[in-house]
């Protein structure tokens, strides 16, 4: 199996890479910096904030493809009151979390780089079900990916037998989550990224994968009581921001 993982050097992306390595897949990683743990992995440096960098990617992986699995895992976050957020941060969030996966999907599909029978998985966030006060731009970008994946799902299956999915994980024990947690947070209740990666890779049919018990509970709460769920997120995150 050939797999292409964006954000594969760190966090959930690296956990996906570990799972796939165990399964014997051939892996190509797209990230800003090279993976620390396993330097033997094929790595393509790319700044996903730059549309030109994204456009140059398919040519670089032309020989490697078509891929049986593409996981769009690269993402950043920034927390803080929206009105105080620097404009460059907002632009970067938009470019990396929202525009980059959409542009890369378009490039890969236009050049037939995803194999028939293959999977294309976007990584969004459980904030899709709850809202995320204190990270409004992040929440918006992730919701865009959910709608994008939902929109692509039927036509890509009908035309090319490609399965499009989107996963909405909750907080994990990654450097990413630790960086954006409110001060004083112990990190308890955060899921192990390897378990989340396994749950995502195992769920081969679902349109929206909610991996892990905590994320499923948050999603259920958000579905049943959307207003209260956002209010709870506000209490645990926004009101504890420095």
């Amino acid at each position: 199996m050939r797999a292409l993982i964006t954000g594969g050097s760190d966090g959930l992306g690296a956990a996906v890479v570990r799972q796939l390595t165990q399964a014997g897949a051939q892996i190509w990683i797209i990230d800003k910096s090279a993976p620390q743990t396993n330097p033997s992995l094929r790595f393509l440096p790319c700044d996903l904030a730059q549309p030109d960098d994204i456009a140059s990617l398919p040519a670089k992986v032309q020989q490697a493809g078509p891929f049986d699995l593409v996981v769009m895992s690269a993402g950043i976050n920034a927390v803080g009151p929206f009105e105080a957020m620097p404009l460059t941060t907002i632009r970067n969030l938009h470019a990396i979390n929202c525009a980059a996966p959409i542009l890369l999907a378009q490039h890969l599909l236009a050049q037939d780089m995803i194999a028939a029978g293959g999977r294309l998985i976007f990584i969004a966030s459980v904030s899709h079900f709850t809202g995320y006060p204190g990270a409004s731009v992040y929440a918006g970008g992730k919701d865009a990916l959910v709608a994008f994946a939902r929109s692509l799902r039927r036509p890509l299956w009908a035309d090319q037998r490609i399965t499009v999915q989107v996963a909405t994980p909750g907080p994990m024990r990654t450097a990413h989550a630790a960086r954006y947690a409110p001060p004083g947070s112990t990190g308890r209740g955060r899921a192990c990224p390897d378990r989340i990666a396994r749950a995502i890779l195992r769920s081969k049919r679902r349109a929206v994968i909610v991996p892990g018990v905590a994320a499923r509970m948050m999603a259920l709460f958000g579905r049943l009581f959307p207003v209260q769920a956002t209010q709870a997120m506000r209490k645990t995150l926004y009101e504890r921001l420095p």
Binding site: P81, F82, C98, I102, S127, H128, G131, Y132, P133, G134, A135, S136, V137, A139, G140, G141, K142, D143, A144, L145, V146, A147, F148, R150, S151, L152, R153, R154, P155, T230, Q231, M233, R234, Y238
Partner: peptide, 23 residues
């Protein structure tokens, strides 16, 4: 299905507005 990029942009606006309303 007929307009994936447009749908994504409007979903992004919805998610942004939902969280900003709370903020």
């Amino acid at each position: 299905a007929g307009m994936p990029v447009y749908a994504a942009s409007k979903a992004g606006l919805d998610g942004f507005g939902r969280s900003l309303r709370s903020e």
